[in-house]
Amino acid sequence: MYISIILIGASCSSDKDEYVPIVENNTLEFKVPANFPEPTYNVSLNPPTEKGFELGKKLFYDGRLASDGVVSCGFCHIQDFAFTHHTHIVSHGVDGAIGTRNAQPLHNLAFMKEFTWDGVATHLDLQPIIPITAEVEMNETFSNVISKLEKEPAYVTLFAQAFENKKIDSENMLKALSQFMIMMISSNTKYDRIERNEGSVFTEEEVAGFELFTSKCATCHAGTLFTDQSFRNNGLAIDPQYNDIGRKRITGLEEDQYKFKVPSLRNIELTFPYMHDGRLRTLMDVMDHYSDGMTDSETLDPMFKDENGTVTGIPMTAIEKEQIIAFLKTLTDDVFLNDNRFSEF
């Protein structure tokens, strides 16, 4: 319903363009789902508008943000797979450059405190600086991006419609990207419909899986966002190819060595491969890692050890693993994955 109103609104105003020079730029409703916490993003400081959102989406899918003119944000963040880089272990960048970490899904970003696997970006507005400027990602400078956008009449028009000062600059560019990204809310899974008493019910297997999940996984994958947003070492063996020190890169603290952000599990069925470096191919591989595959180290989360310091992982039987996976699949949001508002075409 809401979508159609926006679409009607958009088409009306673009029809009017031909005759009336003033384009209406309606504010979009940012709606917090009933079962969600309050957003961390201060929406009132950058309220999404029709034109701001349209601009953000155009930027998101535009290779001009990269030095090679090809690798857009949407290149590694594909909607069909909850905005991850389908089947790619680590992200790919310009000129065949290979990153060191798995592209994370993009959804419910307005509710997150810190971004990327190690939490280096503390605000959504600033997160795009990383992929745009990173050599192994889009390898571009803001000055270059701005001068490229200034040459495009479509951007000149959109920036002018979206922002009062009409300027093509870093601030407006980042604001528009945030307007697009904060609207990307995934809250229409089977799990959500059950949590909001909208008539859905779990199967027997899913019920069993939910109970197991609650007792074995929900300490970290907590709440309706399925993450406590903490950084933890979950016992992945060190991959010498990357030797990724995790959050220590940001804090410099020994205690943060090999810690990565606890990811949300929404749409987890589609965001394979898993873990910060995409080393695990399937959800069963993930279950096997937690039950039997952990490697001990100084910073391994203590919850994976017994009182004697022996690594126990999360004990699970084969059936229990299947049940947990069945529950995890109730976190797939087909409405979100097929929402035209976020689609490139």
Binding site: T122, H123, D125, L126, E171, K175, S178
Partner: peptide, 8 residues
């Protein structure tokens, strides 16, 4: 850091 400060 965030945009509201105009640092972008």
């Amino acid at each position: 850091y965030p945009i509201e400060s105009g640092t972008a």
